[in-house]
């Protein structure tokens, strides 16, 4: 009755990476995490405790950054970011004042502000009640609080834990990977 749908093709990133250019220098904050408003109340999601990251960086409200941000630390964004954010082993939190126009790739992603861009989390993605997101979401676990606004696609991916996947599993992962960076719907 049905035929298998065509997968989305890879598309260009939302914003072309531009050299890092910040209007103000980003200073690493004290190791204490900022008081991130936790409006996430999805019962099925149990956010794992914050990892022991070497430091936590914060982009405060009023700060604008254009370009690519990458690293292994946790990142809290309450300012404005355009470009690309890659914190493969860290947690990226977009605070209530945060406005992000970028693809975000991280271990954990938590949104309470406004994001325009595709999100890819290797562990979990959470959307608070004040979040506004336009973009596709790829994560093994997705948590959505009541009141969250999302315009886009949600896809769950498996965490690549098995070093040698079987042929079938490999095919599945490939199938899923095809949609990474897919056009924002």
């Amino acid at each position: 009755m049905w035929r298998k749908p065509n997968e989305d093709k890879l598309s260009e990133p939302l914003a072309a990476p531009v050299p890092f250019k910040s209007e103000e220098p980003v200073k690493p904050q004290s190791p204490q995490a900022p008081q991130v408003p936790s409006s996430f109340a999805a019962p099925s999601m149990t956010s794992s405790p914050a990892p022991s990251s070497p430091s936590l960086s914060k982009i405060s409200a009023g700060l604008k950054i254009q370009g690519e941000l990458s690293g292994d630390t946790d990142l809290y964004i309450d300012g404005s970011v355009q470009g690309k954010v890659r914190m493969m082993n860290g947690r990226v939190t977009v605070g209530p004042n945060g406005r992000v126009q970028a693809e975000i790739e991280a271990r954990q992603i938590s949104i309470d502000g406004t994001v325009e861009g595709n999100l890819k989390a290797s562990e979990s993605a959470q959307f608070g009640s004040s979040s506004k997101v336009v973009g596709s979401v790829m994560s093994p676990r997705v948590g959505v609080a009541d009141g969250a606004r999302l315009r886009g696609k949600i896809e769950t991916i498996r965490t690549p834990q098995t070093p040698k996947p079987t042929a079938a599993k490999g095919a599945a992962m490939e199938d899923e990977a095809e949609t990474i960076g897919s056009k924002v719907e």
Binding site: A42, P43, S44, F127, V142, G143, V144, A145, D146, A148, R149, L150, R151, G152, K153, I154, E155, T156, E185
Partner: peptide, 22 residues
């Protein structure tokens, strides 16, 4: 409709891919 955790979980657990637009 608006995005709800229960709706997303329901379809995702069944293997569907969900898009949402209120």
């Amino acid at each position: 409709g608006p995005i709800w955790q229960s709706t997303v979980s329901f379809f995702v657990e069944k293997g569907y891919r969900v898009s949402s637009e209120d």
